[in-house]
């Protein structure tokens, strides 16, 4: 057997760039696990979330965060959420299952997505060219999350701070996605 060791690469090789006050960073070292609610199992899952994470089950369109281990729960659609937490390696599902037991159906999504963080005072102006979602405070407050389309690419957008947004898109089209975001950002430079 070969003793070659393989080193994983991130979708955009750790991209980071500054555009005036706006910064774009590729986030790595995060695990994403899809948690689907079994039929009529919402109450059980809710209880497990409270016990293990001290977090609420997120409503569709919003996210919650555990006060115990900083795991974020993204309410993406009825009966399904994503758990997002710091993790390196391929054991993300085990981490979730250890906490929530058999109250949900888990799928590891970690390597399927590219994650970009955009931050800075101009971030909403930079995004308004490609994002059809209303990003004003009243419509999309800190913690809000939703799936949408940017430049024909399926995207999850989450607001993690007043001037900070996290974008997730398919890893297979990561470079096209970055190009779309950069085109939008360069429009306001």
């Amino acid at each position: 057997m070969s003793d070659a060791t393989l080193k994983a690469r991130s979708p955009l090789d750790g991209y980071r760039q500054q555009f005036g006050t706006l910064e774009i960073v590729e986030l790595n070292g995060l695990a994403l696990v899809s948690v689907a609610t079994p039929l009529d199992g919402e109450e059980e899952l809710k209880k497990a979330m409270t016990t293990a994470h001290k977090a609420e089950l997120p409503a569709v369109g919003s996210s919650t965060q555990s006060s115990v281990d900083d795991t974020r729960f993204l309410g993406l659609q009825p009966g399904q959420m994503f758990a997002m937490f710091a993790h390196d390696g391929d054991r993300a599902v085990e981490f979730v299952a250890k906490k929530l037991g058999e109250t949900g159906y888990y799928t590891d999504q970690s390597d399927s997505w590219v994650i970009l963080q955009l931050s800075g005072a101009d971030v909403r102006t930079a995004l308004e060219r490609i994002c059809a979602i209303d990003l004003q405070d009243s419509a999309f407050p800190v913690g809000a999350v939703t799936r949408t389309v940017m430049e024909h690419l399926g995207t999850i957008i989450m607001r993690t701070g007043h001037d900070t947004f996290v974008l997730l898109s398919a890893r297979s089209s990561a470079k096209s996605f970055l190009h779309a975001v950069l085109t939008s950002v360069n429009n306001i430079q």
Partner: peptide
Amino acid sequence: RELWFHEQGDRS
């Protein structure tokens, strides 16, 4: 009255 699917959204 018609059926629409939110494919690029919450899949409802």
